[in-house]
Nucleic acid binder design. Structure first.
Lengths: 207, 207
DNA sequence: GCGATAAGTGATCACCGATCAATTGTGAGC
DNA sequence: GCTCACAATTGATCGGTGATCACTTATCGC
């Protein structure tokens, strides 16, 4: 089933390529079968290497998901930066910003799950943990920068921009995470619900 | 460490007691060590029985968490019913309702995690799955009943009450789940953030 | 008392994450 | 072109996991 083709041995300085191959294989398997249902042996087989070889690139299985988490945060940041127009902020651009976030989560539910919804089992190595937090903060800073433009333009209700940003982020995350985690719940029509939710968040944040 | 005292053998008709003892032990261990860090052997030892004995009461380990999930939903419903005053709905009572939800999540983070944030590994037995969904829907119906009172009183922005309820639930869940899942994030002061979030949700839902 | 049966157990299975010594292949120096 | 240090990778294995089995033990209706 999984690609069991043994991949060629990498030349001396090219460990980074193999590392990314492992990450790609892991993300694909996570998306196909769910994060908890994928073993290190599965990841190794899909990459075309033996299971112990994984541990030359990652200290633990959790570190693999941690790096994917970091990459997911960076991808979210890139999407937000790409979508950021530099026109004067309006209610319409606020709504667009919200949609970018929600679409990211719904289009890449596994990356989103890894980034925001994964239970941490054992304590991570300090350096790995710090990198994840840093990536998360970086994404949030980007988000906060967007929100701050609305604050500066005098379009928002009173409150510090950090407070408004964290509240808004939480509001967006709530819908995305519930739609991902509880797909069997009798939700209202998804598009209508998203539109209403964004409208509510806009009314809650903007004047 | 764990209570290794062997419990007395239950008389014939008293299996339900033992079943609840297992659930209590499991919830305690989940709260202490995290859900993924608790094994069936741990739960059995804390209950005072052997590990295979668990499988006389639950078909899989997942079914234990599933039943805890169901119980968490019912507890949430009870809290909401207990807090529901039957005075005329006001903005203040709306805010109180939001606080009940948030406090439930923050005071019982593991029950909340089990109910809303747990990744389902393999497919559940159909009957167990149906019971969880039913408990979740029951909780939501209770929540929806509260929101509908505000709608009926003409206090809300336009939109079906189901839509408003799902959006509001998502907004509340977003903050609770992020505070639980990412305690290391540099959050603003928790109380201030909660107050601002509830204010935003109120402004988004109420006129 | 006694036997049917519920309640509980030790042994064991396949699989998991992780580690180890041993092996294979690569490429710089000559 | 040959050699050889070392990066890259491996098979074997460890303790622990969820789950299942045949078996034993205690209870209660008769």
């Amino acid at each position: 089933m999984a690609t069991t083709v043994r991949s060629v041995r990498k030349a001396k300085g090219h460990g980074a390529e193999r590392r990314q191959e492992i990450l790609d294989a892991a993300l694909m398997l996570f998306a196909q079968r769910g994060i908890l249902a994928v073993s290190t042996r599965d990841i190794a087989a899909a990459t075309g290497i033996s299971q112990p070889a994984l541990y030359a690139y990652f200290r633990t299985r959790e570190e693999i998901t941690a790096v994917l988490c970091e990459q997911a945060f960076l991808e979210l940041r890139n999407r937000m930066l790409a979508a950021a127009d530099h026109q004067a902020p309006t209610r319409a651009s606020f709504i667009r910003m919200c949609r970018v976030y929600i679409d990211f989560g719904l289009q890449q539910p596994d990356a989103y799950r890894v980034a925001f919804m994964l239970e941490k089992g054992g304590p991570q190595p300090q350096e790995t943990k710090a990198r994840i937090i840093a990536a998360g903060v970086e994404s949030f800073d980007c988000f906060h920068g967007q929100v701050a433009r609305f604050v500066a333009a005098g379009l928002t209700r009173p409150g510090e921009s950090v407070l408004l940003s964290q509240s808004l982020w939480a509001g967006l995350h709530g819908l995305v995470s519930l739609l991902i985690a509880r797909p069997d719940f009798p939700w209202a029509d998804r598009e209508v619900l998203i539109a209403r939710h964004i409208a509510a968040l806009s009314d809650g944040v903007l004047l």
